[in-house]
């Protein structure tokens, strides 16, 4: 019997002659099988792919739309007496809310401090891993270890690492002559230091992951391109930027967009970096409060779910715009073939 799906000959058709003298029941059974077979060919692919769309509808699309509805409502848990609909009041309030703009500023600051060095370093790590190394697998698995470390666990460790009094970061910097025990850096006292600390956590976690993605892409680049370039006198640095990056461009675009989304939704690291994590203010003067954190605070601490929903939608739009810009820019920078 044919097993390839490309040949949709109904089996009943072929096997019918062999069943000479078959009864009407047999006929009906074959018809039934015939229909089944056609169903299989025509609708099965959709059915197989349906679970994803069902899950997406339940956990993706529905929350998105419901969120939009809530953002147009007065949804205060501590004040149910307000009128049901708020119109666009939540959105207009957003424009005048200095906490929102501060959070936006922080989010972009941390995003730039994390995504840019992260992807550049990942590129360098990947090109190092792409050479002939001893214990190759060990290195490759090694760079992925931060990625599989639970984020809460690593953030807690980093939080101690960046503590003012007994932190290792200050100790190391002290050895280099920066800060020192007399004048330790208070990592939680101003924007720049707290951003650096948080960006370090993000970078530590994601460099290895991105490096492996790059590495996988790099391995599909034919060797002879490099050989030709080497003969023409291109050094490793030039090879990286003129050959490797343009040739793995789709993966670069992918990681840029992914890190944009991740960077703008940053939550756990800034949350747990705060000593008073439950306040969700991201430092006493909101030095490092990100938008995701602010949404959480407005929704579940200030109990204003309507306003939090409006902020979520604003964040959604911002991410769309920034990811679009990044997509365009990355395409431009690395060859612009699309």
């Amino acid at each position: 019997m044919s097993t390839t799906r490309a040949a949709p000959t109904p089996p009943a058709h072929r096997s019918a002659p062999r069943r000479a003298g078959g009864s009407g029941a047999d006929e009906r059974r074959l018809n039934w099988r015939n229909r089944l077979y056609r169903f299989d060919m025509r609708y099965m692919p959709y059915l197989m792919i349906a679970p994803f769309f069902l899950l997406f509808a339940v956990f993706g699309l529905f929350p998105l739309l419901f969120n939009a509805v809530v953002s147009l409502r007065n949804y205060r848990l501590d004040d149910p007496t307000l009128p049901y609909w708020a119109g666009f009041a939540n959105f207009t309030k957003l424009f005048g809310d200095e906490y929102f703009w501060n959070a936006l500023y922080n989010t972009f600051g941390i995003f730039l401090l994390s995504s840019v060095p992260q992807l550049l370093l990942a590129l360098v790590v990947a090109s190092l891993l792409n050479r002939k190394l001893r214990a190759q697998t060990w290195w490759r698995v090694g760079v992925l270890l931060p990625y599989i470390t639970p984020i809460v666990a690593s953030t807690m460790v980093f939080s101690v690492f960046f503590s003012r009094e007994f932190g290792m970061a200050n100790w190391v910097l002290g050895l280099l002559g920066i800060g020192g025990p007399d004048d330790p850096i208070d990592w939680r006292a101003d924007k720049l230091h707290s951003w650096i600390a948080i960006a370090t956590m993000v970078n530590w976690k994601w460099i290895g992951y991105n490096a492996l993605l790059y590495l996988a892409a790099m391995q599909s680049i034919p060797r002879d391109v490099y050989e030709a370039a080497a003969i023409d006198g291109a050094g490793p640095w030039k090879q990286l930027w003129r050959i490797t990056v343009p040739m793995i461009q789709p993966v670069v675009v992918f990681t840029v967009i992914l890190s944009t989304i991740g960077g703008l939704q940053l939550f756990t690291e800034p949350m747990l970096f705060d000593q008073n994590a439950q306040n969700a203010t991201g430092g006493p003067n909101r030095e490092w409060q990100t938008i995701a954190q602010l949404i959480y605070k407005v929704g579940w601490k200030d109990l204003n779910l309507g306003y939090a929903a409006a902020m979520s939608w604003a964040l959604f739009l911002i991410i769309l715009i920034v990811a679009g810009i990044n997509f365009w820019a990355t395409n431009r920078l690395s060859g612009g073939r699309r």
Partner: peptide, 25 residues
């Protein structure tokens, strides 16, 4: 035999999908 396994597969996929929906409700 083969068409049976296919039918079983279809059934399995459908059940998974349905049970996911049911789990949500």
């Amino acid at each position: 035999k083969r068409s049976w396994t296919r039918w079983a597969r279809a059934l399995a996929a459908g059940t998974v999908g349905l049970s996911l929906i049911a789990a949500c409700s």
